[in-house]
Design a binder for these strands. Structure first.
Length: 593
RNA sequence: GGGCCAGUAGCUCAGCUGGAUAGAGCACCUCCCUUCUAAGGAGGCGGUCAAAGGUUCGAAUCCUUUCUGGCUCACCA
């Protein structure tokens, strides 16, 4: 039983004895006592006035008195307006802290939930390199997957790779026409960047041709449709679908280059996937489902032969699921892919899609259709929707060249971390390799933390200058505290296992214990709300408390052995929680920095 | 036009199942290294929580209206 549960129990008893009334746990509102008042936990008495039939002040006094005399938890109390501030005994805090020390993997749910979730993230197009928007997506998806694991779920990480379609043909065609056989090896470019170069090249030529056609009297629309290079690209798409050997082998070669490039980027990011889905495989899924749905009456057919789903029960417009010519639309694929995934992983409970909020409506429709088709797991599908990343100068626009490339950003941020670490770090004892690792731990940690500390749902501002900042609410700030704790541990001769239950504690020490005790519920909330941001904010608060403690009391120089043991253990415990919290964000922590 | 989301300090963000005088960081201004890592700490400055109504003991939080911004309402993906 945790402290709040015990307090609720005692409070229920107090009200029964004092006022002869039964209250339920949710009528008792406990909150952390505000800094400016004495106490640790506060009972808000306003909701109880109907029962006490006395004014707030008096009600608080009576309940406080009863608790002080009858509850082993409560040492003292004071009442301010309608707030009953309770001072709990040191022993309670120390007992709870000792319980934390004895818990394996404190904060993580050790009981398997029996559920498996598939988390989809990244899911890039194979025609250009990853950019800043992907970074938010990837860090978010990875982190949520880790958080779900910490909540006792099994997780399968995946992506759907958009490897076919007209956009892929564009870069293939441009390479064929203008590439002179250039390869990643011959050019020294990463595969994804090489392909991206030809995608841009295509667009240039296309624009030139459009301009020329317009100057010859065509309308914008006509010109866009009739430019020779776009006609060639469309032709190539047809050849690809017919599995033309030349086109197909070119496609394979170029995609392999891209994958090699992506894999290098994922490695730098330190993220991974358990299984991959390729759109070139999955685009044919879904048609059979539509047939079935039509038979079952979940869908209907129009006169032209196109198939639709009636979503009026969910207050949405009807959705096309198959064109009149029998070809698939995006939705058809998504329906098929979802069902296919449940076939591949029969014990799956639900799917989490990490996709930008411009597709909110799409996923609402998708889940609605899946429900209509009778799949009960549709209830456990979730669109992990995130807001756009904006730059100080506005939105990223590829046409205006304001796209922030993922590889460039990561390497420049690691480089910044390097400079700052060389300036002020404690790195004398580190080898060259260890230093390089440290730079990337700090740089990438800072970047990930920056992108994850904001609630996923809201759009966010990415200021490159601020993202490499080391002070305040940042990754390096948290990493620094961890390194400090590690340093204390290195200087400490024997590590105690458990601490005494009877000693005087500083206010700040109690606050830290109190914060530590919140860790499990924070992980729980992060998991049920799919938001790493609460882990980031929690960790930041913990670190601030610890830094304040570190500054105001001495740990290893404390002469009272019991107190010293306690402070060492408190430090150790904070360090472990930082490490776990950061791990859930995909952020590494350094032994020294 | 319909739907969804957002608007909190100069800037970036917490807080939103209603609770005390609305919190952090950055920036700006003071202090603190003979102490276990100063990438730190202590303090100051800074707010009509977009606006107006309503609900109530109590509203940044819930409801209504308005304003502003974003996304969306494709036989694109």
């Amino acid at each position: 039983m945790n402290i709040e549960e015990a307090l609720i129990k005692d409070s229920i008893k107090s009200i029964a004895e004092l006022f002869g009334a039964e209250v339920t746990a949710n009528q008792l509102q406990f909150q952390k006592t505000k800094k400016e008042f004495d106490g640790n936990i506060t009972l808000v008495v306003f909701p109880l006035l109907k029962i006490t039939k006395k004014n707030p002040e008096l009600s608080g006094q009576e309940i406080g008195n009863w608790l002080k005399n009858n509850s082993t938890l409560v040492n003292d109390f004071n009442v301010v307006k309608g707030f009953l501030n309770l001072v709990l005994s040191n022993a309670i805090w120390l007992e709870s802290f000792n319980a934390v020390l004895k818990t394996d993997d404190f904060g993580f749910n050790s009981v398997p939930s029996g559920k498996t979730y598939m988390v989809e993230y990244s899911s890039p197009n194979t025609n250009k390199p990853l950019h800043l928007g992907h970074l938010r997506n990837i860090f978010l998806g990875y982190s949520v997957a880790e958080i779900l694991k910490a909540n006792g779920h099994k997780v399968v990480k995946t992506q759907i790779i958009n490897d076919r379609g007209i956009h892929i043909c564009k870069s293939m065609l441009a390479w064929q026409k203008f590439g002179n056989g250039e390869t990643p090896d011959s050019s020294g470019l990463k595969g994804d960047h090489l392909i991206g170069k030809y995608y841009v090249k295509f667009d240039q030529v296309y624009k030139e041709q459009i301009a020329e056609l317009i100057s010859n009297g065509k309308s914008q629309e006509e010109a866009e449709k009739e430019a020779p290079i776009i006609l060639e690209a469309r032709e190539m798409l047809l050849q690809w679908e017919a599995k033309d050997p030349t086109v197909y082998s070119l496609w394979k070669t170029m995609n392999d280059w891209v994958y090699e490039g992506f894999n290098a980027t994922y490695k730098t990011m330190n993220v991974d996937f358990d299984t991959l889905y390729y759109e070139s495989d999955t685009y044919i899924y879904g048609k059979d489902i539509v047939e079935e749905g039509l038979k079952k009456g979940s869908f209907y057919q129009k006169e032209d032969g196109s198939v639709w789903c009636d979503l009026s029960s969910d207050k949405m417009d009807d959705k096309l699921v198959l064109r009149a010519d029998g070809t698939s639309v995006y939705m058809t694929q998504d329906i098929g892919t979802a069902i296919e995934r449940f076939k591949d992983y029969p014990d799956l409970s639900g799917l989490i899609y990490t996709v930008g909020n411009e597709q909110n409506h799409h996923f609402k429709v998708l889940f609605s259709i899946l429900r209509k088709l009778g799949y009960s797991w549709a209830e456990e599908c979730y669109h992990l929707s995130y807001g756009m990343v904006e730059l100080p100068e506005g939105k990223m626009k590829s046409r205006e060249g304001t796209v922030v490339d993922a590889d460039d950003l990561m390497s420049s941020i690691v480089n910044d971390a390097k400079e700052m670490t060389q300036e002020r770090g404690h790195i004398d004892s580190l080898s060259e390799t260890e230093r390089e690792t440290l730079y990337s731990t700090i740089g990438l940690g800072g970047l990930k933390y920056y992108l994850l500390k904001v609630d996923p749902k809201s759009k966010m501002m990415f200021d490159p200058k601020e993202s490499i900042d080391l002070n305040g609410n940042t990754g390096p700030f948290i990493q620094y505290t961890y390194a400090r704790i590690k340093s204390v541990m290195r200087n400490c001769e024997n590590l105690p296992l458990i601490c005494d239950n009877n000693m005087d504690l500083q206010e700040i020490e109690i606050e830290i214990i109190q914060h530590i005790l919140d860790f499990p519920s924070v992980i729980n909330k992060a998991g049920s709300d799919f938001t790493p941001a609460v882990i980031a904010n929690y960790s930041y608060e913990l670190v601030k408390l610890y830094n304040s403690f570190y500054q105001s009391v001495s740990i290893l120089k404390e002469e009272n052995q019991n107190l010293q043991d306690f402070r060492i253990l408190l430090s150790k415990s904070v360090g472990e929680i930082i490490e776990k919290g950061m791990k859930l964000l995909g952020v590494n922590v350094p032994e020294r920095m």
